[in-house]
């Protein structure tokens, strides 16, 4: 079995999988303390990782019906991410591996996203195209072998997830407002507003800054009460533009 630890941002995570890629446990502990700061505070994230990390590892082992005796390899995210947050996971993984005389695998966070495709029950086999659109990253990768990936497009400004959160803030949905924006969008008309999808950005790169600005202008032009009344339409159109931008680049890449 493989025990993995991930503390690159504000979630404290541990998982146990078999070497065949079957997920036995996947524990994600969200800190939930950053909302009132309007964003993730690295110092606070790091403090909470330290509080939670051993309990999260324990929890993952229990859920997997395993003990450290069953673990053959310890894997940990080594970056990119918040340095103060990463070091808690790395120190923990190093200590567990050293004390148990287990090999330690330092994993690139983005490679982790790509490697999620190798997990059971439907593992993919390279070659494939992989779009990574997470909270902090938006990039297009070409994967030709399991041990790596090639970045063929990336965002020139915000990640798609950041675009969601920034749009939500413009609509007064708080932080992190991405999920709230998506919920609101379900009741709206995605064609109500025509927001840009950065078609003019060449190649496979992404850009969401123009979209954010377009929403800012729309909110300003509509005024407070009209923005409130049409919030669902704004959210749906904004979300539609983000997805269109992603899908358009995937089409180009194919």
């Amino acid at each position: 079995m493989i025990l993995a630890i991930e503390t690159s941002c504000d979630d404290t995570c541990a998982a146990v999988i078999t070497s065949a890629g079957e997920i036995l446990a996947n524990v994600v502990s969200s800190q939930g303390v950053h909302d009132r700061f309007g964003g993730v505070v690295p110092e606070i994230a790091s403090r909470h990782h330290l509080e939670l990390v051993n309990a999260v590892v324990d929890d993952a082992l229990v859920r997997a019906g395993a003990t450290l005796d069953d673990v053959e390899l310890v894997a940990v995210t080594q970056g990119p991410g918040l340095v103060g947050a990463l070091l808690v996971g790395v120190a923990t993984a190093k200590a567990l591996a050293a004390a148990r005389r287990l090999p330690l695998a330092a994993v690139d966070h983005l490679h982790g996203h790509v490697a999620a495709n190798y997990l059971a029950p439907d593992p993919m086999e390279p070659p494939f195209l992989c779009l990574i659109a997470s909270g902090g990253h938006t990039l297009m990768t070409h994967v030709t072998e399991p041990g790596g990936f090639q970045v063929i497009g990336q965002t020139l400004d915000d990640a798609a997830g950041e675009a969601f959160d920034k749009g939500a803030r413009l609509l007064g949905l708080g932080y992190p407002g991405g999920p709230a924006l998506s919920r609101l969008a379900q009741d709206g008309d995605p064609a109500a507003f025509k927001f840009p999808t950065a078609e003019r950005v060449g190649g496979l790169d992404f850009s969401f800054a123009g979209l954010k600005t377009a929403l800012l202008y729309a909110v300003r032009d509509l005024g407070e009460s009209e923005t409130k009344r049409r919030a669902a339409d704004l959210a749906a159109s904004y979300e539609h533009a983000i997805v269109e931008a992603l899908v358009g680049r995937v089409r180009r890449a194919l």
Binding site: S46, L50, V53, N54, V57, D58, L68, G84, L87, V88, A91, T92, A93, K94, A95, L96, A98, A99
Partner: peptide, 12 residues
């Protein structure tokens, strides 16, 4: 944090 996380990991 490095020292304490290390001690906690070793203890665990």
């Amino acid at each position: 944090r490095i020292g304490i996380a290390t001690a906690r990991g070793l203890a665990q």
